[in-house]
Amino acid sequence: MMMRPYLTVVLVLLSTVAVCSKQAGIIKICEGHSSKITCSGGTKIHIMKAIYGRTGKDVCPSKAIKTTSCLSESSTCIVKAKCNGKSSCLLKASNDVFGDPCVGTYKYLEVEHICRIAFFFISAVCSKQAGIIKICEGHSSNITCSGGTKIHIMKAIYGRTEKDVCPSKAIKTTSCLSESSTCIVKAKCNGKSSCLLKASNDVFGDPCVGTYKYLEVEHICRMDQQPLKDSSSFEKKISSHLLIFQTFGNCMMMRSYLTVVLVLLSAVAVCSKQAGIIKICEGHSSKITCSGGTKIHIMKAIYGRTEKHVCPSKAIKTTSCLSESSTCIVKAKCNGKSSCLLKASNDVFGDPCKGTYKYLEVEHICR
């Protein structure tokens, strides 16, 4: 008898989930075309996975198929940033959006999504600290998670998308936001139990000069996820080389193997001859260019100052400052393109050390 109410609750919960997720599915958009994802009944889009490229021949068939194993690494990230939390979202399968992971091959965008209530009532008890905070420009606020849970940032917007939040006479536009908002807040808060945020141009850059802005952050508190135990592809390659060395029983065979490895390394050196590091002094711009059908891949970026002799100046108060979002911003701007113009500016990266003349240092390869 006591089990009956429990079963009733379970059935209600299951039926609720079924209703919430009935619009879930997969859409496939051929290159050059657009399609819309729509969620109704108060539910919102949640992107599970996205692939832009080509992994088979049957989808969007074409004569222009040179490979069936290519995808843009940033596909899921880009689609999540564009659609998550919205009731409707228009997507275009285009190199302009995702870069071109396989030149000469006709591609498509495949997106797996579900429609769900913004915060499931099932997890209301576990995630009761979840919510949205809004911080007016120039002010700060703290996100705190208790009970052993950690912060997980869903979305962040620095700029202005409406008039009612942080009202002011200084509103020139209601359609501006810093593209790096979510990236910066994630880098600062994810995995922590407490995080202090400041709504400031020094942190996010100034996406709309002359408009009074605010920072809006959507977050949840959740238990830490266990890190993946699988080794990285690089570690696997190293392990395979060590296994080969252990297998070879004599020096002659090892010498032959080393010769092959050196030849391969020299070949890689030739293929990556466009790789390098560029340094751009604050206020200046420079371009990264990859030729021969190769595309830019950003390894690391630093905006700030870590040494004196780069972009020398009298205005150096510190040599240990950098914008935490540097790499993320440059990757979003350049990865997968053949050419990319970068500007070393506080408007782009925020100001990590006021009064110090800074520079942007970017390490990249063409591949």
Rank of each mutant, 00 (worst) to 15 (best):
I132H: 11
G42E: 02
M2A: 14
A301F: 13
S88N: 07
S40Y: 08
M253I: 12
S193I: 04
C311M: 05
C145L: 07
M252R: 11
C20M: 13
F98E: 03
H297F: 10
C328A: 03
K343Q: 09
N84C: 14
I37G: 02
V209R: 04
A267Y: 10
T356L: 12
C195F: 13
L197R: 09
K92E: 09
P167F: 03
C290W: 09
C208K: 02
S339Y: 06
G304M: 12
D202R: 02
D96T: 06
C166H: 01
P352E: 15
T8Y: 15
Y6N: 11
M48T: 12
T161G: 00
L14H: 05
C70D: 02
M1I: 15
E31K: 15
N190R: 12
K169D: 00
S181W: 14
M154V: 01
A199R: 01
C189W: 07
F119L: 12
G336P: 06
A187N: 10
K36L: 10
T67E: 08
G205H: 01
A275Q: 07
Y212D: 03
A269K: 13
K229T: 07
P61Y: 10
S15V: 10
V348W: 13
N95I: 04
I280R: 03
V263M: 14
L360G: 09
R160C: 00
A187I: 08
G283T: 02
M223G: 05
G41D: 06
G191E: 07
S256F: 13
V10K: 11
L109H: 07
H46A: 14
K82A: 06
D230Y: 12
F204R: 01
G56S: 15
L71V: 11
A81N: 10
G293I: 09
S21C: 14
C353L: 03
C60E: 05
C189S: 05
G350Q: 06
E216N: 00
K163D: 02
G53H: 13
M48C: 10
H219T: 05
P101G: 04
H219A: 08
A332R: 08
K150M: 00
C83D: 08
C251S: 11
F245S: 06
F248I: 15
P352M: 14
L13D: 03
C115P: 04
K186M: 06
K358T: 10
S40E: 13
K155F: 12
C183Q: 04
G276H: 09
A301W: 11
L71H: 05
T173C: 01
F121E: 00
K172E: 00
C328R: 08
G42Y: 13
I26F: 10
L264N: 04
V111C: 04
C290Y: 09
F120H: 11
G276F: 12
A344S: 04
K128A: 10
Q225T: 10
S127H: 14
G159I: 02
K80A: 05
L264E: 05
T8V: 15
L228K: 11
Q225E: 13
R4G: 03
L196T: 01
G32V: 03
L215G: 00
D224P: 15
I27M: 07
Y359W: 13
C189M: 05
H297R: 10
C39E: 02
S291Y: 15
C281P: 02
K155A: 11
